[in-house]
């Protein structure tokens, strides 16, 4: 029991149990909304709103934003935005219940936290760009796409994991000794 308490912050769900729950959630999401989960959709809406606040009119004219921009409808007023807010709340809840909430930078011992932050920002940039190009990220395209057997979903899944496996060797210094 003591062991359990001490290591509580590192006790995660069994991955198969987590996967099973995530699968059930995907089914429920498709049953209710007819489409899957997402993570960058909400982020994109936030970007559009910000751009619109900073430079009014630009969002309407920009060929990329205008697709999503609707005068009557606030872009923030989007299903995925609410879902994203829920995600943050849900993750916080889980973290708080397991005592994992803490401001810190998680990094391998041989990498300084500043370096880790730089890597994270490069990764974020690439992921943001790539997710827009591929019309969805790991959750939107790969997970939700595959759930309904979308060819694009499987391709994106293979693209993400395949590339990461192939190049993992060259980036090993970032993660392991």
């Amino acid at each position: 029991m003591d062991f359990w308490k001490e290591n509580k912050t590192h006790i995660y769900w069994n991955p198969y149990f987590g996967g099973f729950m995530l699968g059930l959630l995907l089914i429920a999401t498709f049953y209710i909304t007819g489409r899957g989960l997402g993570a960058t959709g909400g982020t994109k809406s936030a970007v559009i709103t910000t751009v619109d606040k900073v430079a009014p009119g630009y969002a309407k004219e920009s060929s990329y934003y205008s697709k999503y921009y609707d005068e009557e409808k606030n872009p923030m007023n989007n299903w995925l935005v609410f879902e994203t807010i829920g995600m943050i709340a849900g993750a916080f809840l889980s973290g708080a219940l397991s005592g994992r909430v803490k401001f810190r930078v998680q990094h391998p011992p041989h990498i300084s936290s500043n370096k880790r932050l730089i890597y994270a920002s490069i990764g974020g940039l690439l992921f943001g760009f790539g997710s827009q190009f591929a019309r969805g990220c790991t959750s939107g395209a790969a997970l939700s796409g595959s759930a309904v057997l979308s060819l694009g979903g499987f391709i994106t899944m293979a693209g993400i994991f395949g590339t990461a496996y192939i190049v993992a060797y060259f980036f090993r210094k970032m993660w392991i000794n």
Binding site: Y119, A120, S121, I122, G123, G124, L125, L126, F127, G128, F129, G130, S131, Q132, F133, A134, R135, C137, T138, I155, T156, M157, A158, G159, I160, F161, G162, T163, A164, I166, V167, A168, F171, M174
Partner: peptide, 12 residues
């Protein structure tokens, strides 16, 4: 897009 995200994943 998948390839770009793969790089993003391993770096970020």
């Amino acid at each position: 897009g998948g390839i770009i995200m793969g790089f993003g994943f391993i770096i970020g």
